[in-house]
Computed example of a mutant assay.
Amino acid sequence: DNIAPFEFIPWILGQCATIAEVKSLLDRINLINIDFSKELPLSPLHWIISDKEVSITVESVKAGLKIYDNPIGILTNNPTFDIQMFNLNNYINITKEVPENRFSSKLDLDIYSRGMGAIGLPGDLSSSSRFVKAAFTKLNSISGTSESESISQFFHILGSVNQERGCVRLAKDTYEITIYSSCCNTDKGIYYYKTYENSQITGIDLYNENLDSQILISYPLISGQHIKMQNR
């Protein structure tokens, strides 16, 4: 099956309900070098695909299409996923617990602050460091049982690796930012998002729409900040 990269995700989602079905389709896929348009050329994308149980990472590299089981459900950009996973070995001593003095029994070292078990956890804005930070945050975070608590916790996890305007320069007056963050409750069919300028979480109920329609349904991003004034 010859598929352009910009067709890849709808091609998968339109035919598969499980990762097992995805892997079967990927056995016969051939990604072809076709740009979406002159203004939107191909990008070296990495994809994460998940069902309710497991996730995989899909990467198109010079050696061909690589498919990795993704046990942590985290993905960033380059380097490739196998390198990102190997890099986690460098942080094997990072812990959410109060650390022990392993430096030397001859020194009386002090635990002077909470969170010192995570000293060494990357805080820079490179993709490899953000992979480590997101993996640690996700794997150690604890959510409540309600829908609201789960949504809140999800956006806190993503917020730990946000890109803020001004910290990564792309060009003279252009900076990399986290344009939007989003998640979906696949049981209820509700898509949640917030944007860089709007911290309020917005929801769209997919089951309120005609999912058999032949017409594309779209909603503009609510990008302006919404502030609730408590004393007015």
Rank of each mutant, 00 (worst) to 15 (best):
G115T: 05
F131E: 05
G117W: 03
K133F: 04
M116I: 03
I111N: 12
G117E: 12
L107C: 09
I111E: 11
A134Y: 02
F131S: 02
M116G: 06
P122E: 04
S143A: 15
S126P: 03
G115D: 07
I119D: 12
Y112W: 15
T145N: 13
K106Y: 12
G144N: 06
A118G: 06
S129G: 07
K133A: 07
K106F: 14
S105L: 13
G144A: 07
L125W: 02
L125M: 08
T145Y: 09
S126H: 11
L109I: 14
G120E: 14
S126F: 02
S141N: 14
G120A: 07
G117R: 01
T145K: 08
S141H: 08
T137V: 12
D124H: 04
D110P: 10
L121N: 07
Y112G: 12
I111K: 06
A135T: 12
L121P: 01
S148Y: 11
A118Y: 01
D124L: 00
S129D: 04
A135K: 00
A118F: 04
A134W: 07
L121H: 04
A118V: 14
K106D: 15
P122F: 04
G144W: 09
S126I: 04
S113A: 15
A135S: 12
E149Y: 02
T137L: 01
